[in-house]
Design a protein around this nucleic acid. Structure first.
Length: 443
RNA sequence: GGCGCGUUCGUCUAGUGGCCAAGGACAUCGCCCUCUCAAGGCGAAGAUCACGGGUUCGAAUCCCGUACGCGCUACCA
């Protein structure tokens, strides 16, 4: 079930709800009930449920667990300052808790107000958290929090009580930052006599600096990861094992398996650092798992439309073990279809040959002559280039001189396999690049 | 300041009193494979289980304390 919690009218953001849909759908997480698909417990948008919250407030008044509060923002502010100064426990002081009913009835008509919940002040409230076990809170330190704001909208607390009870929510699984307000929620449910849902407070994800996730440390919406070239299955796999484990050795998991295996009792209570290196590994892993047809489509999506289907068929498999993120695809193959001579530092050509320029020239010249006459296919190209190792030609190992050829063709000392690349480039363009490299070296 | 939560290799974690002189994965390093780079295979290094007390024949595992980190402390969620 998907519920949109939009009770803070000051923080509405255009398009935010659509991004929630998009992000969840991208990850393959879908819902049976929600604003867009309907369901028996609607509306699923809190701003459309205002009457229900009002009804709940009435019930709370009826059991004497709510009261009007007319305190001004300024009074509240000075109260907080005073408490901080005197090292007192923070929280509302109950100023309006016992106002005369007659006066209240009058002020409600003429003044802005909020409604507060009467917390029990004696004893303790115990939360039985599914991740952390029992957590005990002293009621004396709890304050009467706002449940209905002066604009008539509920706070999160009231909305939670109202919606989770009427929508028959069994589990409240949320971030650890909610733990301190859990006693509020327990008392709210108990006040109206509804069963308290099961609570599970998950550890937060933190950046490499141990602080809240920031842009620098990986904090971003799921959709931003999509744009950066991450696969949803990798993202889900990555997220799944942050704070949870299946057993002592599993680190790869699919969505279906996760759905079948996940259990709250294997969630750990401590925060996890968001490790981008692991995400990259997982993404590479899942890329290698993609069936050829789908992989080819993904590669094509990264390339200009003009690229031929034939070229794509050859190149896609070569890319699959060499790609960790989709955005790495284009730079790796652009030398194939951009009509240009790769630019590079001439020194790169002879680097692997101990900067022996005359030997490097030799390599380039021999390659040109070896490739000039043959029928243009992989087998012949490989045979011809391997032949250069012989004493009567270069007399050095191919692994020594092949890097020179990579640089001449791709502009860098590594990339997708050379022989296949030469086939795709064609004889004319290949020889042109070798000759250009030789020219570069001579000047 | 008050309250709460947390603390096992750099990172994610396994571990619920003996099978742990702590297992797996990422990252790192080495070897193999190899047309480069990857991928893959094999291997190495890496944690006095935050610290200090206790309980016990025996503790990473139970209890107490300390330190450090984080969260909350709104008419935000």
């Amino acid at each position: 079930m998907l519920r949109i919690e939009d009770t803070d009218q000051t923080r509405l953001v255009e398009g935010a709800v659509d991004r929630i849909y998009d992000a969840l759908r991208w990850l393959g997480i879908d819902w049976d009930e929600g604003p867009d698909v309907g369901g028996d417990y609607g509306s699923y948008v809190q701003s459309e449920r205002l009457e229900r919250y009002e009804q709940m407030v009435t019930s709370l008044f009826n059991c004497d667990r709510a009261y009007y509060c007319f305190c001004s923002a300024e009074r509240l502010k000075t109260l907080r300052e005073l408490q901080a100064q005197r090292h007192l426990p923070p929280g509302y002081d109950g100023h309006c808790r016992n106002l005369e009913p007659a006066k209240v009835a009058h002020r409600v008509k003429t003044e802005p107000f909020v409604v507060r919940f009467k917390m029990l002040k004696g004893g303790v409230t115990t939360l039985h958290d599914l991740v952390r076990g029992p957590v005990v809170f002293e009621n004396r330190l709890q304050d009467d929090f706002v449940i209905l704001k002066s604009d008539g909208f509920p706070t999160y607390h009231l909305a939670l009580l109202t919606d989770d009870s009427s929508m028959e929510i069994s589990h409240v699984i949320r971030g650890e930052e909610w733990l301190p307000s859990a006693p509020k929620h327990v008392q709210l449910f108990e006040a109206v006599g509804y069963p308290v849902p099961q609570f599970a407070h998950l550890p937060v994800l933190v950046g490499s600096d141990q602080k809240k996730l920031s842009k620098r440390t990986g904090g971003a919406s799921a959709l931003e990861y999509k744009d950066k070239g991450y696969l949803p299955e990798a993202m889900l796999n990555f997220l799944a094992f942050l704070g949870w484990s299946l057993d002592d050795k599993t680190s790869i998991i699919s969505k279906d398996e996760l759905a079948a295996q996940f259990s709250l009792d294997r969630v750990v209570p401590n925060p996890a650092i968001f490790d981008l290196e692991r995400l990259d590994f997982l993404n590479g892993y899942h890329i290698r798992e993609i069936p050829p047809v789908r992989w080819k489509a993904l590669v094509a999506a990264e390339c200009p439309d003009s690229v031929s289907d034939e070229l794509m068929s050859t190149v896609a498999p070569l890319l699959q073990t060499r790609t960790n993120r989709l955005e790495e695809i284009l730079p790796n193959i652009s030398f194939l279809f951009e009509d240009y001579l790769p630019t590079y530092d001439a020194a790169l050509l002879s680097e692997r040959l101990g900067n022996d320029v005359s030997m490097t020239l030799h390599v380039l010249q021999d390659v040109v002559s070896a490739l000039s006459q043959i029928d243009w296919n992989v087998v012949n190209i490989e045979f011809a280039i391997r032949g250069l190792q012989d004493e009567e030609h270069l007399g050095i190992k191919m692994r020594k001189f092949i890097v020179t050829l990579y640089v001449a063709i791709m502009g860098k000392p590594q990339g997708i396999p050379l022989f296949d690349s030469l086939v795709l480039l064609g004889r004319e363009e290949s020889l042109r690049r070798f000759k250009y490299a030789a020219d570069l070296l001579e000047n």
